[in-house]
Amino acid sequence: MTTPPFSAPTTAELAVVSTQLGRTARGVVGIAARCVCGNPTVVATTPRLPDGTPFPTFYYLTHPAATAAMSTLEATQVMPELAALLADDEEIAGAYLAAHEAYLADRAQFGDVTEIAGISAGGMPTRVKCLHALAGHALAAGPGVNPIGDVALERSSWSPERCRCEEPGAALRDVEASSA
Score class of each variant (00 low, 15 high):
L104C: 11
G118D: 06
G94P: 04
C130M: 06
G122F: 00
T114A: 15
E115K: 10
A95P: 09
V113G: 11
S120I: 10
I92H: 02
A108Q: 14
D112H: 13
Y96P: 00
I119C: 12
G118W: 07
H132L: 02
M124E: 04
K129M: 09
I116M: 10
D89C: 02
T114V: 15
T126A: 14
P125K: 08
D112A: 13
E90F: 06
R127W: 13
E90P: 03
I116P: 09
H132Q: 05
L104G: 07
A135H: 01
A135F: 00
M124R: 05
L131E: 04
H132W: 00
F110L: 11
D88F: 01
E115R: 13
K129G: 01
R127Y: 14
L131T: 02
M124W: 07
T114F: 14
L134K: 02
E91V: 07
K129F: 08
I119Q: 14
D89V: 03
S120H: 03
P125V: 09
A133E: 01
D106M: 05
E90N: 01
E91T: 08
F110N: 11
M124V: 05
G123W: 05
D112N: 13
E91Q: 04
T126M: 12
M124N: 04
E101D: 14
D112M: 13
I92L: 07
T126L: 08
G111W: 08
L131Q: 00
A95Y: 06
E115P: 14
G94K: 01
L97C: 11
V128G: 07
E115I: 10
V128A: 09
A93R: 02
A135Y: 00
R107I: 10
M124H: 06
G123F: 03
E115L: 12
M124P: 04
A99T: 00
E91W: 03
K129V: 04
D106G: 10
A117E: 15
A133W: 00
D106W: 10
R127T: 14
Q109H: 15
H132E: 05
L131W: 00
H132S: 03
K129S: 07
I119G: 08
A98G: 08
L134Q: 03
V113R: 07
H100A: 05
L104D: 07
A108P: 13
I119F: 15
L97T: 12
R107D: 09
I119Y: 13
F110V: 11
E90H: 01
R127I: 05
Y103D: 05
G136K: 03
L97I: 13
G94I: 05
G118F: 12
D89N: 06
G122S: 07
Y96A: 03
L104I: 12
A93V: 01
A98T: 08
G122D: 01
F110Q: 11
K129W: 06
A98M: 06
A95M: 11
A133L: 00
P125N: 10
E115N: 14
L97S: 12
G136I: 02
H100W: 10
G118R: 08
F110S: 08
A105S: 15
A93M: 00
H100T: 04
F110M: 06
A105F: 12
I92Y: 03
E91D: 02
A87S: 01
A133N: 04
A93F: 03
A87N: 03
F110R: 09
T114L: 15
P125T: 07
A93E: 04
